[in-house]
């Protein structure tokens, strides 16, 4: 990049960068700074005066059992979405990589969920599991299991986990499949000649070689589960029943609308920023050292 030709007239370069910069500052940096500032403020009950309270909002937050409950729900939800989404995608990618015909067809079907809006995904899964009309709840009833996610918190969580993971399988599949195709055939052949069967090869050879892809996807999936699943959860359960599917994002959103406590809302936003910032840094540190096996 150093010995690259540069055009004279830096002002033109600045001008070309300006639209992106202006939007970034106006709609990203400025609001983020505001959230940061508000998180250190406390408003009196009438909303008339604010004063600086330092980190009080944060310490109050981490002592609030309701907030900690939501943190726990979010961690459980994210772990399940990531495990289910990545696990099934890896299995499917390995299968598609193994078979000799139909690869193209399988890939085409598997990428469909990527295009579908999260709120539509929620609708599809709500219909499958509708307590009275749904096909799956009908089959479950036949097997003697009552399904009603409007009353049962555990079932509601299972529903939003399945819907969120379903949507993310496309993305995970494409990356695992690309990773599998990048493994040299000669390596597999050598292992096969040494007498390693398909399962053994997968465990001892393919999985370690896929570890950079897996690590990258792990971070992406956690970000997805933390932030991008808002629409799925909001449309499917709205956080209920009770607070059984309330994630951190949903809590910020619901409380922000009630507008009860500006400082606490802002502190919650800042916590989210810290989480996504941390995940991004981890991801980029990894990208720098792309290969690590």
């Amino acid at each position: 990049m150093q010995n690259r030709i540069r055009f004279p007239g830096g002002w033109l370069g600045f001008l070309l960068m300006l639209p992106q910069l202006a939007i970034t500052v106006l709609f990203f940096v400025w609001p983020a700074a505001q959230a940061l500032w508000q998180s250190t403020q406390s408003q009196d009950p009438f909303g008339l005066a604010t004063r600086f309270v330092g980190v009080d909002n944060f310490s109050a937050l981490f002592q609030d059992p309701l907030y900690l409950g939501t943190v726990k729900t979010t961690l459980l939800f994210s772990a399940l979405v990531t495990a289910l989404g990545m696990g099934s995608a890896l299995l499917l990618a390995a299968m598609v990589n193994q078979v000799r015909f139909g690869k193209r067809f399988y890939q085409t079907v598997l990428i469909a969920p990527y295009a579908i809006a999260p709120s539509i995904v929620a609708v599809l899964w709500l219909f499958l599991f509708n307590p009275s009309l749904g096909w799956i709840s009908y089959l479950l009833r036949g097997a003697g299991y009552e399904w009603n996610h409007a009353l049962n918190g555990g079932q509601a969580l299972a529903l939003v986990v399945m819907a969120s993971a379903w949507k993310q399988v496309s993305y995970n599949f494409l990356f695992f499949y690309a990773g599998l195709q990048a493994i040299p055939a000669s390596l597999i052949e050598a292992a096969a000649m040494d007498g390693a069967g398909p399962l053994r090869r997968f465990r001892d050879l393919v999985l370690p070689l896929l570890s950079p892809t897996s690590f990258f996807l792990l971070v992406v999936n956690l970000v997805y589960a933390f932030f991008d699943t808002f629409a799925v959860v909001d449309a499917a359960t709205g956080g209920g029943p009770g607070k059984s599917t309330e994630t951190l994002i949903l809590k910020v959103y619901l409380e922000g609308f009630k507008g009860l406590d500006l400082g606490s809302s802002a502190a919650q936003s800042v916590v989210l920023m810290a989480i996504v910032g941390l995940l991004t840094v981890i991801q980029f540190r990894y990208v720098e050292r792309k290969v690590q096996y």
């Binding site: 940096v29 505001q34 959230a35 991008d228 809302s265 936003s269 989210l272 996504v276």
Partner: peptide, 9 residues
């Protein structure tokens, strides 16, 4: 800074 983390500001 995805939209989700700086919603209200």
């Amino acid at each position: 800074l995805p939209v989700e983390v700086r919603i209200f500001p």
